[in-house]
Amino acid sequence: MSTQTPVLATEHLKKIYGKGESIFTALESINIEIKKGESIAILGKSGSGKSTLMHILALLDTPTEGVVSVDGTDASKLSVKKLDILRNKQFGFVFQQFFLNANQTVLENVILPLKIAGVSAKERTKRGMEVLKSVELEEKAQNKANDLSGGQKQRVVIARALVNEPQVIFADEPTGNLDSVTGAAIQKMLFTLNKERGITLIIVTHDHELAAKCDRLLEIHDGTLVKGA
């Protein structure tokens, strides 16, 4: 039964920014269902509403109209605390920007979700080092996050998204500002996680090549779904 319940689903999703003169409809009647273990690409031009959709799916933002459900439960019915726990334990985030704390070490940055979850310091270090190993950055663990190259930073960000062993990873332009070789390595890493651990992938991109590697493709144009509903 549970395999048939989508991890994430939306009904008649609508997002309106601003009001009066500056009112702007960023998303319009979005209906999607994402099954467990699927890899989804959200494709579209700049400003089409990809990040907006991803934020709503990730329960970081609320839709103006419509319903988002997680494992069959209407997210708007969940308490703030439940939502916090859900994001902390089930979701992993790779944002469009790195959002690394420049003054902290690579390891400290990676273990932030575990720290928030209240995991003990010993356990945090252990799991942090494991995940850094999987992105081949274990010898950079004690370096300041600021001292890494762009590609290394992106790998740190992915390590951070993985450290809490999430069910769903949201990745906003994970390869957007990387050279093609590094980009390919990151992609490989994400798809390995998807295949081997069954982690659901939701990747926002405007790269058609990357989108093609996903199980399914959702294309957005000016806030409406033109393909893959």
Partner: peptide, 16 residues
């Protein structure tokens, strides 16, 4: 601001 936003996104509560 960004750091706070990130922590909140990762599930850190208001009271914390």
């Amino acid at each position: 601001t960004k750091e706070i936003g990130l922590m909140k996104a990762m599930g850190m509560g208001r009271s914390q």
